[in-house]
Nucleic acid binder design. Structure first.
Length: 204
DNA sequence: TTCACGATTAGCT
DNA sequence: GCTAATCGTGAAG
């Protein structure tokens, strides 16, 4: 089974992996695997991260943490390696990974996944998807496919139902960058990173 | 209390 | 390419 193989060929990054610059974490998360044990389900759903965006908290007008510590953004100022989940447009959830040492804001938006395990359950949660790449090729799509909701706000990615694992022998792939998508401030910064020529990226 | 606005998606022209 | 759907958040009054 693919799930068992994944646990043998990948490992859980230490806290220090996340306590680095937001841009470094955003680039290094490409090719890593996101695993989720959905409440009420007995097996994991997993996907390979193929697209991310960096939101360095300091000096980035587009970052939510730019507003300072509020009930919604407090987790961004907390220890790294935790999940920042927020709701956009009143209907979709987006998943971020907290980066930088504790106290320094910074997070990485996970924008797209290549579905790996639990594809049948992803399809049930994403009836609008016409094919497998469409299941998680967008920030709102991947949280729906993976069953990730606001109940994962602040979840520790090193210990809990939501984890990220790195390949022990990373395969070589080209990384491309571009401007971030869907924002109106700091639009010139090239802080979006994605795997080149991957069918599951939200846009080439 | 009120109000404007999204780190989006799906469906239609 | 255009737009409706839909509501929490944060800033202003």
């Amino acid at each position: 089974m693919a799930g068992i193989d994944l646990l043998a060929t990948t490992s859980l990054p230490q806290r220090a992996f996340y306590a680095r610059s937001t841009v470094d974490v955003a680039r290094d998360l490409l090719g890593c695997f996101l695993l989720h044990r959905v409440t009420g389900e007995d097996s994991l759903v997993t996907g390979r991260i193929v697209e991310t965006e960096a939101y360095p908290g300091e000096g980035d007008e587009a970052a939510h943490s730019c507003a300072g510590i509020t009930p919604r953004t407090r987790v961004i100022f907390g220890p790294p390696g935790h999940a920042y989940v927020y709701r956009v447009y009143g209907m979709h959830c987006c998943l971020n990974v907290i980066a930088e040492p504790g106290g320094t804001p910074g997070c990485v938006l996970i924008r797209a996944l290549e579905p790996i395990c639990g594809i049948d359950r992803m399809k049930l949660r994403r009836p609008a998807a016409r094919n497998t790449p469409d299941l998680a090729n967008g920030p709102g799509k991947l949280t729906a496919a993976m069953g990730i909701g606001m109940d994962r706000y602040g979840a520790d990615l090193l210990d809990g139902p939501l984890t990220i694992r790195r390949p022990n022998a990373p395969d070589r792939f080209a990384i491309r960058s571009s401007r971030r998508i869907g924002i109106s401030k700091a639009i010139d910064l090239e802080l979006r990173f994605f795997v080149a020529d991957n069918a599951c990226v939200s846009r080439p």
